[in-house]
Design a protein around this nucleic acid. Sequence first.
DNA 1: TTATTTTGTTTGACTTGTCTAACATTTATA
DNA 2: TATAAATGTTAGACAAGTCAAACAAAATAA
Lengths: 220, 220
Amino acid sequence: MNSFVEENYLKALFYLSNKNVDGEVNVNDLSKRLNIKMPTVTSMMKKLATKNLVHYESYKPLKLTESGKKEAALIIRKHRLTEMYLVEKMGFGWDEVHNIAEQIEHIKSPDFFAKMDELLGYPKIDPHGSPIPDKDGKMVWVKYTKLSECKQNDSVKIAAVINASDDFLKFLNRKEIHLGLTMEIESVEPFDQSMVVRYNEHSSETLSNTVCERLLVEKA
Amino acid sequence: MNSFVEENYLKALFYLSNKNVDGEVNVNDLSKRLNIKMPTVTSMMKKLATKNLVHYESYKPLKLTESGKKEAALIIRKHRLTEMYLVEKMGFGWDEVHNIAEQIEHIKSPDFFAKMDELLGYPKIDPHGSPIPDKDGKMVWVKYTKLSECKQNDSVKIAAVINASDDFLKFLNRKEIHLGLTMEIESVEPFDQSMVVRYNEHSSETLSNTVCERLLVEKA
DNA sequence: TTATTTTGTTTGACTTGTCTAACATTTATA
DNA sequence: TATAAATGTTAGACAAGTCAAACAAAATAA
């Protein structure tokens, strides 16, 4: 069982290692991210190396082992589930939940997180469009973009839906919008951020910002 | 701000000090309760004394200061709110929640507990009949008994109601059962724990165990 | 009232996680 | 490529919280 502190190192390592392709992280970057001085980081890396969570060699960049990656993903899973729970079930705003989730993610109780998962309907992506790792620490590594963040003339493919309420799904059905569908953005209304899009037989459908915020896409 | 560990000492001290009238606690008892050796307890007591949370004198019994009592009550508040939340809002059983609550009670976020309080409808007693301290650490010091735990011929006064749902309150209304009412227990049915009680003009009303579990009483 | 048991304290050691100061290596730059 | 800057490591210190061993006081029993 990893300590609270170790978990924080793993999580930070995980975030930083996903910024470049090879997954390598500098001691210095980790130190800055965690607000912990470099010597402390070095010694913790040695410790995590003995636990086979990190590949460590003097003066070489850090890298999570497979097992380290899994542990980290599980912490991130707990963090994201907690954030979603706080927002969806307790009525917090997205700006308020990070600090609480930072603490709750370290709770030792598989049941607690399993219950959240269940109450949330086993979500696979969080409302930022970031994937939520599953119970085995596996996650889909596509980072989706919200449709609302795309620009005029972008060609995008619908990849996922946030907050799939009944009403919302019915709405998408009526508009014949479904996963895998490709659409072009004809224009973005500056006033209310609504979008006019084109797809299949629909030559100019207007989608409100509320809708665009809930559609996650891959850019072509 | 007290540490996680300090909070555990305060909580244990609070529980033990409510077992006798003068609120005094032995180092040995505290040591046993926390599963921490006596020398460690002694040194923590000295530390808490410098923080003005405990009255400490060598070889004398321990006692919480007013400020220590308040801190402890606030932790217990968080513990009880958490337990109730887990049961009422997440669907856990009462047997499953203690360990989770032991961890969540240390979360630093007034908003988080304020939200739970709100979602639970500002409960004043928990389903065990134990009082929940308010935001200032004040609590009503009556320890109620569930009607279901009383015996034949007991004379009891209705003191509080658990899980006051609309339906339940309507039911009580129909039966003319209200706070402050005194009733005698005529008999207890061994098969289903239902009770036959007598009060005012009602000479033999039968109350199911479900009802008796939700009525908190003071014994005469 | 003395002896024994129980309770409480002191001392010194250990672990985890942190720091600063000094030193070493790598990388960038002049 | 020599030097300066940035990055990383070693060494030693410290705080929090824990323990075991030895000692001290208080309570109980003989």
